[in-house]
Amino acid sequence: MGLLQKLTKPFIDIFVLVWDFNLLLLNFVLPSYKPGHLVPEGQAGHGGKWPEYIPPKEGDSRSACPMINAMANHGILPHDGKNISFKELNTKLRQTFNFAPSFCFFVPKFSADFLDRSYWGGRFDLAELSKHNAIEHDGSLTRQDVAIVPDQAKPDLELVDQLLKEATGTMPDGSPLLTKRDLSLALSKRRYAARKSNPAYTESFFHNMFGSSNSSTMLTIFGGRVNDLTPMLTEERFPDNWEPRILGRFGLTMAAFNATVIPVERGVDVKKIEASHAATEAK
């Protein structure tokens, strides 16, 4: 990170937090969008109609994030996943998932900083977002650790299947629903397994919080609905007739998001999983 970026970062961070809190208050005051009316006419996803899904071809760039990859697979971001501006990512995240403007600024700005580029004029390829221990981290619910599978562009379908089978909730129509408790248990099991299988495994409070944050989008933007998460996590594709489940006027703020992230992370108990395995092996 350049000297100017280091000097301005604390001021930008404070500004984003204040901005985010004010958006949170406005969401309380202003009426939410009605289901089916979030995405305006002329924008990708209006009426549940998304641009054509085209899987990545050889040479295309993809990241460790299913949601960002889906945007490229549908042509919302350049399909080859290359030469994308951080400001374009900001705009497209906001339009596609209804994250708050503060959130949509913070994530690309954070990415620009760890890639040592300017948010205002810099560009990147999606694969660069998979820099180890930046946004990408060990113990992911949809990818094997980078020490085991260096290419983070594709999901591990066995891990995804294990995750979705954790769902214990039920929608009114009887379809399965992931809950906070389910996600905490899945993260507990995954971190235990990653520690056992990856000699280069690394973990910190920051990485754990980022892992819970990445995972918690499944409960917020997707509402925990397994029928919607299945195509997103396996094919990195938007389901037909899908729209974000966050309908607040200013989208999902970081402050509101923490109401999901913190309980999920607090519910993670790797020691309990370790003790359970030890008891099983002792029999």
Rank of each mutant, 00 (worst) to 15 (best):
G2M: 04
L4E: 15
K6E: 03
L7K: 04
D13S: 10
V16I: 15
D20W: 02
F21Q: 07
L23V: 12
N27P: 02
L30E: 15
P35Y: 09
L38Y: 02
Q43T: 12
G45A: 02
H46K: 04
W50R: 02
P55H: 03
S61M: 01
C65S: 14
M71E: 11
M71A: 12
H79L: 13
N83W: 08
S85P: 07
K87E: 14
N90S: 08
T91V: 13
L93Y: 06
N98Q: 13
F99W: 07
F106K: 11
V107G: 06
L115Y: 01
R117V: 14
S118F: 12
S118M: 13
Y119I: 11
G121Q: 14
R123K: 13
E136D: 09
D145E: 13
A147M: 11
I148N: 02
V149F: 05
K154I: 11
K154Q: 14
P155W: 08
D156N: 11
L157I: 15
L157A: 13
L159Y: 04
P172G: 03
G174I: 02
S175L: 03
S175Y: 09
K180A: 14
D182C: 04
L183I: 15
L183E: 05
A194E: 10
N198F: 07
A200V: 10
Y201D: 14
T202K: 15
S204K: 04
F210R: 01
G211T: 05
S213V: 06
S215G: 15
L219I: 07
F222S: 00
L233Q: 05
E235L: 01
E236Y: 01
N241V: 10
P244R: 06
G248I: 12
G251C: 09
P263Q: 14
V264N: 12
R266Q: 10
G267D: 12
G267F: 08
V268F: 06
V270Q: 04
H277A: 13
A279P: 01
E281A: 11
